[in-house]
Design a protein around this nucleic acid. Structure first.
Lengths: 164, 164
DNA sequence: TATTGTTATACTCTATAACTATA
DNA sequence: TATAGTTATAGAGTATAACAATA
């Protein structure tokens, strides 16, 4: 005994994220952040290296002769995780690990010549990804976004506050 | 034979994320997005439910009588993942699952009375979290951030474009 | 005993694939 | 055969903990 009135299709023609979620910067930040992160990782992976390689090389390019613990701390990644990344970088001779003669427990990690060159390539890739993912935003808007995110990040953790 | 000149502490006094990463909106978006996501999840978890419960309830509050596939699609989560979330919500009688008499494969999911009430609570929690995590930003700035993120999200996926 | 780097292990979230029941 | 929901499984990515070497 079917109901006499034929029911119209109940599946919504276009599913759309609820307005209250779309209007939550937190929801958008979390969702976009996750998507961005995975896409960036995939892109770097496709280019041949782990996504963290760029970050690590960037750290080494600024501060000289860091120890592994410092690098891991700076990037908020696990020390154990960093080992694998450094292994990869060392295999390709982008970095060098040398025992610290003053404290033989430590490794002094430094950028090699070809590491510096590779860093340039990573920068180009990063720029390309930014253009891709932040495409709809103009220069001024990107700066605006950067400023806002920096404010949030800086308030959460001092290591996100640029040194004077 | 220690070197005569005592080496100053080589560990940088303050580790700081490299400037070039801090100036990349992509890096900040990815990092903050991840942190925000996990913190929000933890907060909801601490409040007793999975973090997705709020999203699901919000969907149900807008569109009526959705099927599970529609909900999963809308929120870009896996159908299999959704099952567990709905189980949890149903256990606490926040939603109801009824077989669609027109197609007995489908479940018509709807919000219960106490589900609607719970949604209000979730909204309060979401507001609190937003205040917490976006604290350093004023009202205008939050709106700015929301607008920018909406632009990015909308360009990537039409389901992030608010319906007119 | 404490710390550095390393290795091994477990856990969380997500993605994929097999299964059932209906169509 | 194809689809909706369910269940089971495997896969990243990350976090925790044990380990050897050095201090």
């Amino acid at each position: 005994m079917a109901s006499p009135a034929v029911q119209p299709p109940i599946t919504a023609p276009t599913q759309c994220v609820p307005r209250e979620l779309l209007e939550s910067p937190l929801f958008l930040l979390g969702r976009l952040g996750y998507e961005v992160k995975t896409e960036v990782m995939d892109a770097f992976e496709a280019a041949g290296f782990s996504a963290y390689c760029y970050s690590v090389l960037a750290v080494l390019d600024e501060g000289d002769r860091e120890t592994q613990a410092t690098i891991a701390d700076t990037l908020k990644i696990d020390r154990g995780q960093l080992v694998g990344i450094l292994d990869e970088l060392e295999e390709h001779e982008l970095i060098e690990r040398k025992r610290d003669p003053n404290d033989r427990r430590r490794h002094l990690v430094s950028l090699t010549r070809s590491g510096k060159r590779q860093l340039t390539g990573y920068r180009r890739l990063a720029r390309r990804l930014e253009d891709e993912l932040l495409g709809p935003l103009g220069e001024g808007e990107r700066a605006q976004l950067r400023g806002l995110l920096q404010r949030i990040a800086g308030a959460r953790d001092t290591r996100y506050v640029p040194r004077p």
